[in-house]
């Protein structure tokens, strides 16, 4: 089992997964999001290949209304 933090909340997964799977599990597939892992950007092109490891901290962001 691995434990990762996404947007400040802890999520547990029974087996290691890649960023693309994480996005699907969070029901964000197909949405325009950007991902940061442990302070570094994970480019879209690397979502399928970037393996998450226990203790990772992720940020998943979108564009919202603002001034």
């Amino acid at each position: 089992m691995i434990r990762v933090t996404v947007n400040g909340a802890t999520h547990r997964f029974e087996r290691p997964l890649v960023v693309e799977e994480l996005i699907a599990r969070l029901e964000l597939a197909g949405k325009k999001v950007a991902v940061e892992r442990n302070g570094e950007i994970v480019p879209k092109s690397a979502h399928a290949a970037t393996q998450l490891t226990d203790g990772d901290a992720l940020e998943v962001v979108v564009a919202v209304g603002g001034g």
Partner: peptide, 11 residues
């Protein structure tokens, strides 16, 4: 536009 965390489970 502003950049904010996704609202997981509610979007």
């Amino acid at each position: 536009v502003a950049i904010r965390r996704t609202n997981i489970g509610q979007t």
